[in-house]
Design a protein around this nucleic acid. Structure first.
Lengths: 123, 123
DNA sequence: ACTATTGTATTAAGCGCTTAATACAATAGT
DNA sequence: ACTATTGTATTAAGCGCTTAATACAATAGT
C-alpha cells in the first residue's frame, strides 16, 4: 500500500520520519534487513531516487547500515535507537507545547485538553 | 524582526499558521487593523506576493476581512475565532498523539513525558 | 564462472514556491 | 480635486523537489 504523505512537506523528509517511526516502534527491529531501494520505493509509491535520499539521511544518523551489494539493515545498536527515539519524543513534545502556548493555552489547560482527548479515544 | 521559518515547509503555509496563532492568542485582537501587505511582508522579511497568498487563505477562512482600499482587519466574529482555535488545538493534539503512538509510546507513557517536561519548564 | 540483485550516479524534464519588478484600480484622507 | 496608500495582477527568473530513464560497479548466490 502507498504510504501516507501530506502535500505541505517534501516527500523525502516524510519518508525519513516514517521510517524512523517504524524503527522506533519495532516494526523494523534492530538488525532487520530492509527491502531494496527499488522495492521499498515501490511499496511507498515514490521514485527510487527519492527513497535513496531518505535512506542516505538515516544512514548518516547511524540508524541504518548499508552493505554495498547486499542491501541495507537496521542498526543493532539498541542504545543508539533508544537515544534517537527519546530525542525525537522530546522534540515533538517541545514543539507541541510551544504551539499550544503560542495559541494562548495555559499549561494546565493544555494538559486538560490532552487527558480529555485520551478519555475520548478509550471509548 | 524577521519571523521564524523552518526550511522544510513552504513559507506561505507557515505565515498562515503564525498569523493564526497571533489571532488566537490575542496578539491580533478581534477587529484590529492589520498592517498593509507591503508592511507586514517587510516585517516578516518575505515577498509581498507570498504574504498576499497567506492572507488570501486567512480571508477565505473568514478570520481576516479585506477592505478594498483601506487595508485588512481581523474579524470581529469572536465565535468564529474560538471555533477555529479549538479546531486547530484538537488537530494539533490528535497529530501529536498519533505520532507518539506510532513511535510506540503508550498513552500513559506519553502523558507522563509531558508532565515531566512541564515540571522541567517551571524551573 | 555466471547472473541477478544490490547501491549508486547522471541527465533532463516538469512542477510549485519565492522573489523581483512593475503596473493598475479604487478610495481614504487631505 | 489631488495624492498617497490600499489590495491586486502579471511576467520572468531562479531554486529545490520529484520523477523517469538509463547506466555502472560490486558481489551474493547459484
Amino acid at each position: 500500500m502507498p504510504w501516507d504523505f501530506k502535500s505541505d512537506r517534501p516527500i523525502y523528509t516524510q519518508l525519513i520520519e516514517q521510517i524512523e517511526l517504524k524503527i522506533f516502534s519495532g516494526e523494523y527491529p534492530p538488525g532487520a534487513k530492509l527491502p531494496s531501494v527499488r522495492d521499498i520505493a515501490q511499496e511507498a509509491s515514490v521514485n527510487p531516487n527519492t527513497m535513496q535520499r531518505a535512506l542516505a539521511k538515516l544512514e548518516e544518523d547511524g540508524l541504518v547500515i548499508t552493505h554495498r551489494t547486499s542491501g541495507r539493515s537496521i542498526t543493532e545498536d539498541i542504545e543508539l535507537i533508544k537515544k534517537a527515539k527519546n530525542q525525537l519524543a522530546k522534540q515533538q513534545i517541545a514543539e507541541f507545547l510551544e504551539k499550544m502556548k503560542l495559541m494562548g493555552f495555559e499549561k494546565t489547560e493544555t494538559l486538560a485538553l490532552i487527558t480529555d482527548m485520551l478519555e475520548e479515544m478509550k471509548k
